[in-house]
Amino acid sequence: MEVRTIKVFTTVDNINLHTQVVDMSMTYGQQFGPTYLDGADVTKIKPHNSHEGKTFYVLPNDDTLRVEAFEYYHTTDPSFLGRYMSALNHTKKWKYPQVNGLTSIKWADNNCYLATALLTLQQIELKFNPPALQDAYYRARAGEAANFCALILAYCNKTVGELGDVRETMSYLFQHANLDSCKRVLNVVCKTCGQQQTTLKGVEAVMYMGTLSYEQFKKGVQIPCTCGKQATKYLVQQESPFVMMSAPPAQYELKHGTFTCASEYTGNYQCGHYKHITSKETLYCIDGALLTKSSEYKGPITDVFYKENSYTTTIK
């Protein structure tokens, strides 16, 4: 009895394709271990004539594949690729409408935090270190965002349907971005203890939790000093293409032309909904596939993004 075979390709990165001759009487799992086709788990399936010449994702289970996976995804987590594939199996079914010149995501599976993050990423200057993220990001900007969303979920250790947080998501993504040249110098002034300067680099240099107003941050924000008295913390120097200011959701007025974009969060910790506000020729609110415009805006804002380049204080 002759062994019926077909020729397929296996890959971990969709760049390096490895030619395989597979036995049609055995499952993919018996031949390769966990195997995925377009995100779908085909591990328990036997090869079919229609699979001839198709590319299958496999887990990096030998040295060659491990090197290829690390170079593309910059992670050695053995569960990463499987999590990416199972997320992709959902995100490829989502709709990605162009809204006001940006790629958004039609609401499904509690994905409003991903839509808000995706919209924000198209408006701030950011370059990702893992080629996987950078490639998928370019495709997302062009309207094909399924891979990018699935990668975000995998890097953030999230599953489809789980509630997510924009600030946490951005923080994970910033860790995989090139923020080497970003720098922030802060000064804390206390009447009792004097003053202390701190220099922050990388992710810490672009994120701040405690106030939404970048102007206020430049002037000074009140913080408790270690001595128990009130101290003032203010920005001395900022070198970065953008800054992200966050605070627990509270009524906040966004003035046209003073910011790049913002995240609105309605609801409580267990259950809520994100919308995205962007400042173009007027203010726009993007909620999944829905767009509304207004000249002014007041609502429960939790993150505001500002364009920056270089700032030095005039406070002496």
Results as ranks from 00 to 15, higher is better:
225 C>S: 01
204 E>Y: 10
198 T>P: 01
54 K>I: 13
10 T>I: 10
123 Q>E: 10
288 G>S: 01
53 G>I: 07
138 Y>A: 14
146 A>W: 08
65 L>I: 06
205 A>F: 00
255 K>W: 06
238 Q>C: 01
87 A>N: 15
219 K>V: 10
54 K>E: 14
303 D>M: 04
151 L>S: 06
200 L>F: 12
187 N>I: 09
248 P>N: 08
133 L>F: 04
262 A>V: 00
155 Y>H: 02
247 A>P: 00
93 K>A: 10
5 T>K: 12
152 I>Y: 02
251 Q>Y: 12
242 F>L: 02
169 T>Y: 02
194 G>W: 02
16 N>P: 05
107 W>D: 04
254 L>F: 00
155 Y>V: 02
218 K>I: 05
138 Y>M: 15
195 Q>D: 13
156 C>N: 06
242 F>A: 01
207 M>A: 07
135 D>S: 09
40 A>I: 13
239 E>M: 10
250 A>I: 09
311 Y>I: 11
117 A>M: 04
78 P>A: 11
201 K>D: 07
262 A>D: 02
33 G>I: 05
242 F>E: 01
209 M>T: 15
135 D>N: 11
88 L>D: 03
142 A>Y: 11
13 D>R: 05
104 S>V: 05
206 V>P: 01
89 N>M: 08
128 F>G: 02
171 S>M: 13
78 P>W: 15
111 N>H: 05
16 N>D: 06
274 Y>C: 05
82 G>Y: 08
26 M>N: 12
219 K>A: 13
152 I>W: 03
150 A>L: 02
210 G>H: 01
3 V>G: 12
113 Y>G: 00
86 S>F: 07
274 Y>D: 00
131 P>Q: 05
114 L>P: 05
55 T>E: 07
197 Q>G: 05
208 Y>F: 12
169 T>P: 03
39 G>Y: 10
239 E>K: 11
293 K>T: 14
189 V>Y: 10
16 N>F: 06
29 G>Y: 10
40 A>D: 15
209 M>F: 15
190 C>P: 02
73 Y>M: 04
173 L>R: 04
32 F>V: 11
213 S>N: 10
255 K>F: 08
134 Q>I: 09
276 H>W: 09
79 S>I: 11
270 Q>R: 08
233 K>Y: 06
190 C>I: 02
30 Q>P: 07
42 V>K: 08
9 F>E: 10
115 A>Y: 03
185 V>P: 02
88 L>Y: 15
143 G>K: 01
98 Q>C: 11
203 V>D: 06
163 L>A: 14
157 N>I: 03
259 F>Q: 01
163 L>K: 15
274 Y>V: 00
204 E>W: 07
66 R>F: 13
49 N>G: 11
268 N>L: 13
46 K>M: 15
305 F>T: 02
117 A>E: 03
158 K>Y: 02
169 T>M: 07
10 T>H: 07
142 A>Q: 15
242 F>M: 00
139 R>Y: 09
290 L>H: 14
189 V>P: 03
18 H>L: 07
105 I>N: 05
51 H>F: 05
53 G>L: 13
152 I>V: 10
122 Q>E: 04
108 A>T: 08
313 T>M: 15
127 K>L: 07
70 F>G: 11
280 K>T: 09
204 E>H: 12
135 D>W: 08
232 T>I: 15
158 K>H: 03
222 Q>P: 13
16 N>K: 10
273 H>T: 02
31 Q>L: 14
241 P>M: 03
101 G>H: 06
94 W>Q: 04
185 V>D: 04
265 Y>T: 00
13 D>V: 06
205 A>L: 00
42 V>A: 10
4 R>H: 11
23 D>A: 11
167 R>P: 03
61 N>A: 12
268 N>Y: 12
186 L>V: 15
187 N>F: 06
260 T>V: 15
26 M>K: 13
49 N>H: 15
147 N>F: 06
176 H>Q: 11
87 A>E: 07
120 T>E: 03
253 E>A: 12
131 P>N: 01
169 T>C: 09
143 G>D: 03
249 P>Q: 01
33 G>D: 03
212 L>G: 02
169 T>I: 10
175 Q>Y: 08
163 L>Y: 15
199 T>L: 07
131 P>T: 04
189 V>K: 11
305 F>S: 01
235 L>M: 03
161 G>I: 02
254 L>D: 01
143 G>I: 03
20 Q>E: 10
253 E>P: 07
180 D>Y: 10
195 Q>Y: 10
76 T>Y: 11
312 T>W: 09
296 E>F: 15
44 K>A: 15
4 R>G: 13
39 G>A: 15
141 R>K: 15
106 K>A: 15
274 Y>W: 03
134 Q>C: 10
55 T>V: 12
67 V>R: 14
198 T>S: 12
299 G>W: 00
113 Y>W: 08
127 K>G: 07
183 K>G: 04
71 E>H: 08
261 C>H: 00
134 Q>G: 06
18 H>Y: 08
5 T>H: 11
202 G>Y: 01
298 K>R: 12
228 G>W: 00
232 T>D: 05
127 K>I: 09
248 P>T: 08
192 T>W: 07
239 E>D: 11
137 Y>A: 08
98 Q>T: 14
169 T>G: 02
209 M>D: 08
3 V>Y: 13
152 I>L: 08
173 L>C: 07
307 K>H: 12
84 Y>W: 04
94 W>M: 05
243 V>I: 10
264 E>Q: 07
128 F>Y: 08
196 Q>G: 06
167 R>D: 02
212 L>T: 07
104 S>M: 08
89 N>D: 11
155 Y>E: 03
259 F>A: 00
308 E>D: 08
303 D>P: 00
150 A>G: 05
235 L>K: 00
57 Y>F: 13
312 T>R: 15
234 Y>A: 06
264 E>F: 01
310 S>R: 15
162 E>G: 06
99 V>F: 14
244 M>H: 04
205 A>Q: 00
225 C>H: 08
43 T>F: 10
279 S>A: 09
280 K>W: 08
99 V>C: 11
181 S>D: 14
167 R>F: 02
140 A>H: 05
197 Q>W: 06
41 D>T: 11
149 C>V: 14
300 P>S: 12
153 L>V: 06
196 Q>C: 11
63 D>Q: 10
85 M>K: 07
256 H>Y: 11
207 M>P: 04
263 S>C: 12
242 F>R: 01
312 T>D: 08
37 L>V: 09
249 P>I: 03
13 D>A: 06
181 S>N: 11
241 P>K: 10
145 A>P: 10
256 H>F: 10
21 V>N: 12
135 D>F: 08
255 K>M: 11
110 N>S: 03
74 H>C: 07
208 Y>T: 10
248 P>D: 08
144 E>P: 03
293 K>M: 11
220 G>R: 02
44 K>R: 13
136 A>M: 08
205 A>K: 03
225 C>F: 00
95 K>R: 10
268 N>F: 11
19 T>D: 13
171 S>V: 13
163 L>T: 15
184 R>Y: 01
277 I>P: 00
303 D>G: 03
234 Y>T: 10
151 L>P: 05
162 E>W: 03
289 A>H: 15
189 V>D: 14
79 S>A: 14
79 S>R: 13
170 M>P: 02
48 H>Y: 14
203 V>S: 10
186 L>A: 07
89 N>S: 12
182 C>M: 03
14 N>A: 14
132 A>E: 01
127 K>Y: 08
232 T>K: 08
215 E>A: 09
19 T>M: 09
132 A>M: 03
81 L>W: 08
